[in-house]
Design a protein around this nucleic acid. Structure first.
Lengths: 200, 200
DNA sequence: CACGATACCGAACAGGGTGTCTGTAAACAG
DNA sequence: CTGTTTACAGACACCCTGTTCGGTATCGTG
């Protein structure tokens, strides 16, 4: 078998314990013993699986990203043309399913590297989508591609975090998706009802 | 006198040492002794000024924000009507002047609280600006105000970070400001030359 | 300039967290 | 059932933390 049942159990327990405790006290306030105690695992066993707190956190994040990618795959291949928002919707659903883990990551806990992993992953996917679209257009972009990518991902992550931090989300995922696409398409002055000043 | 020259010297030295070392090795890898050694200050003296690493970092961030606020004040009062982008430009100039400190903060080093301070500060300023504008419009916003604010600040911070991380910035501040405003006004599909799908 | 006040220094201290290593007991896969 | 793998409990040295101390140098002020 690929993996012993015991190792799976302890790894899961440690991951869950980490997420729970970070939400309670914050990552920097935790000791390895706190985590092992919460997970009901011996301290020595912890070091048999992970190099330390940060390593555990990194793996939890990596697992989350992998899970997300799996759930996104059908949504992406299914809506290859146009931007139906299906992937975005699926992403929000994943956030609501794994809310605690997302909160921990998106808060930038730890040394910020888990969040960095997440952002980089989103940026890569975005860049891919951009390139695919660019192939079907030959209008000269008014905005530097790098700047655009950063802005897009930054916005996405900020909204995701806001979404994850709501207790008993007051806004359904569909509505959030509509707003996000609206925002992305037309800009925020129009979207917020503000009048835009003339250009130049 | 308000402050002894000696205290100013050591505080400055410790702050500078922190920034320098974080850029080299990352916040979590630093010990208090590393910092005091770099600053050429006795370890005991460190604790006479700060509660610990995090406290020092928090003060460095607070100082940076205060300095920014001072530089922004004339730009804001000078362009009360419309959005000329003057504050934005002044902000980018400040980033380029205090590049190292900004990099450290915007990377989310430490437990992420310094970055949080920065984001909150930006959010407060943004909300203020929003309210001022809302008073001059009575169109119903299409997008939830909270979501809009998060998105706006998230984008701003992401771009700022990207800007700060460039070595020998290839894009002048004026150009970046133009693009950011463009993006904010018209949305990214139009701005990037992509065709926008029909709404609904 | 001389004074008192204040900040720095260097060393030492206890306390706690880390990371590693044992031998032993239990759970696993085939 | 049997050999292998994993978890356990305890102990260990090491490093970092945060605080304390008396002695010394620098400061602001009269």
């Amino acid at each position: 078998m690929a993996e012993d049942r015991r190792t799976r159990r302890t790894r899961r327990a440690l991951g869950a314990a980490l997420v729970e405790l970070v939400l309670e006290r914050g990552f920097s306030a935790l000791t390895v013993e706190d985590i092992t105690e919460q997970a009901d695992v011996a301290r020595a066993t912890f070091y048999a699986h992970f190099k330390g707190k940060d390593d555990l956190f990194a793996r939890v994040t990596a697992d989350l990203l992998e899970q997300l990618a799996q759930r996104l795959e059908p949504a992406i291949s299914g809506s290859a043309i146009g931007f139906t928002g299906k992937p975005l919707l699926e992403m929000l659903r994943h956030v609501s399913d794994e809310r605690d883990a997302y909160r921990v990551v998106l808060r930038g806990e730890g040394d910020g590297k888990p969040l960095q992993m997440f952002v980089d992953s989103c940026a890569a996917a975005t860049a891919k989508e951009f390139k695919a679209r660019a192939g079907r257009n030959d209008v000269q972009p008014r905005i530097d591609a790098d700047l655009l990518a950063r802005a897009w991902v930054g916005e996405q992550v900020a909204v995701l975090r806001w979404w994850a931090e709501q207790d008993t989300p007051p806004m359904p995922a569909e509505e959030a998706v509509r707003m996000l696409l609206d925002l992305a398409l037309h800009g925020r002055y129009w979207a917020s009802g503000f009048t835009a000043p003339d250009r130049h």
